[in-house]
Write a protein that binds this DNA or RNA. Structure first.
Lengths: 337, 337
DNA sequence: ACTTGGCACTTGGGTGTGTTGAGTGCCAAT
DNA sequence: ATTGGCACTCAACACACCCAAGTGCCAAGT
């Protein structure tokens, strides 16, 4: 009872089951795959695999289906990544290059990912974290209203209209702007709060009051950049595979809607040696996703932002992993510009 | 065979069916509602109602269920709006008042609406259309890169980093800024393209090139404001009522995901005398929504932006209509500030 | 002109009973 | 370790049957 063949059997079971959605039996296995042994042998192998918790039988005397653990082993040790087809690659590239601005890039990314994988696609907005302050603009809109704009080196812009206490002269504002700019120009966004606190202390007395409000709003803006947003696409794909979620797709939809849940989920996924990270079924910390798998990876300069897909545990892992990885790479490349 | 009683029968059928999801028969009707007649009489009434296409029998000799037309009559002529409970009203108000900025207001609105109605809630972002240019800021970031910021009177801000052809001096930029500002300050966003075109023509020769790019980006920004976005919540509610969508919720999810579809749908809905607009099942222009109903209404100063819910045709119209209307009113009130 | 009780008829759904076929587990032989 | 053989299981399907809820219609009553 050789170990390699047992793995081969597991692989065959996973592939057949993913393909047909039906429990696969020993006879069908030897027929469809050219295993050089008889069905009885396969049965023995399957008994061992079941013993090890890699496959399970829905009911006595029916074929086996992979368990989460079985998929895990499959993903980790058996499967080979299937590269995307050339047309697919071209499609990704063409689509992403046509994007107009950051929002558009993200939007196109999530759509192509959903389309490519036939799953729900999730893209987290690129983080500002690593970026630094490129410019700050402060504009007096009304006597007590100021527009504060924070431009980061990665091209993202955050702005906000803030009320300032007391009246503020144009000249004072210009002065204030120069001081602030001098203090924070080039500072990393993560280090901004500290710098701002310092800057606040050295402000001349007459600017303290108004300046304080502005500095505070700047801190808020820097935070906004870090306040992560996610974008979804392909939710309708869940409906197609409604039969793959024995309970209901309700909990899954709920999870998707809770940005907090998804963000935590994504952030917890460390990409492994393969370049992607896979969470299978019950491996997911969130209960509502116990029948779902998530494939995610980082992208962008520091791979801090994540992107990925979510689908039923019964999915074509090799192909989907390849798609996620490919899209992440193309996206990273686009963002470098 | 009195007309009023027939309507009463229709009302009873709708209410019972909405409540129980089961075809309702003549006997059950006289039992549950104190109609003062026998089941045979009701049967006669039901025959007429069926004749008129207001109700239908899923199969011979089973109870009747309302048709889309039946719901329509119910909504138009029979039902009475059920006002929200005091705690519900308080909840809406409290939640909306705690909002921090426009995004937050919209976000909270869509959530409370989904929660209140147990349906999918849709809120279209407030339009800039009616607003005017309050201020324009142009900042030189790099020799060939300029940040353009457009601030509207309603407080919304759109910004973009644009590349400009050729090199541009600070002084030239300042000049350009003054000219543009003079030309468009106070102009309504809807009228902006025309004004910009005019401004472009009177630019001095040496600013034509760079100025043209800037003006074009401004036009784009104004468009962005009008480019309507919608926000969803409560998608998971669809899963609960999966049985109410005989086909599948797939097409519905698809429609929801296509912002264009939803926007067109909302914009087509003229609110009637009741303050809300209802689209029932096949009344929806989009095929995927032939089993869904939409209740929407306008909000905000000119009622130009829309908000509403989407659910199965079998829904509690009076209560849901009341909720949509109430939320729209509270939202309008908040936005006035 | 409605209403009503009565009655024959329809039908989906539930239950009980075989039957079938894919599949398993185990064992003795190779 | 592999294999053929065999008894056994069980979901799925088909069929038969019955029941409850419901309908349509008619003739009689108001």
């Amino acid at each position: 009872m050789s170990e390699p063949r047992r793995l081969e059997v597991l692989r065959a079971i996973v592939e057949d089951y993913v393909h047909s959605r039906e429990p696969v039996g020993s006879k069908a296995l030897v027929d469809r795959h050219g295993l050089g042994v008889s069905s009885a042998t396969i049965r023995n192998d399957m008994a061992v695999l079941e013993e090890e918790g890699l496959i399970t039988a829905p009911h006595t005397s029916s074929g086996r289906i992979p368990t989460d653990k079985g998929y895990r082993l499959f993903v980790d040790r058996i499967s080979e990544v299937k590269p995307l087809s050339a047309p697919e690659k071209r499609a990704i590239q063409a689509l992403l290059e046509g994007a107009e601005d950051l929002d558009d890039v993200v939007d196109r990314t999530v759509r192509i990912l959903a389309q490519l994988t036939n799953q729900v696609a999730v893209v987290q907005f690129p983080r500002l974290g690593g970026a630094a302050v490129r410019h700050i603009e402060i504009v007096l809109l009304a006597p007590q209203q100021v527009l504060v704009v924070l431009i980061a080196t990665n091209g993202t812009v955050q702005q906000r209209v803030v009320p300032v206490p007391g009246t503020l002269q144009e000249a004072e504002l210009a002065d204030l702007k120069q001081r602030i700019l001098g203090a924070v120009s080039g500072v990393r966004l993560t280090a901004l709060p500290a710098e701002l606190a310092h800057a606040a202390q050295v402000l001349p007395q007459h600017l303290r009051h108004a300046g304080g409000a502005l500095l505070k709003s700047l801190e808020h803006l820097a935070g906004l950049g870090r306040e992560d947003r996610i974008v979804l696409a392909g939710t309708a794909n869940l409906a197609r595979s409604t039969v793959d979620f024995p309970l209901s797709i309700g909990p899954v939809l709920e999870a998707l809607e809770e940005q907090v849940v998804m963000l935590r989920l994504l952030s917890e996924m460390e990409q492994d040696y393969r370049g992607v990270s896979v969470r299978i079924g019950s491996e997911n910390p969130y209960g509502g996703l116990s029948e779902a798998s998530v494939i995610a990876t980082g992208y962008g300069p520091d791979s801090g932002a994540k992107l990925g897909i979510l689908g039923p545990t019964r999915m074509d892992y090799p192909t989907t992993m390849a798609a996620v990885r490919a899209v992440a790479r193309y996206l990273s490349r686009i963002l470098e510009e």
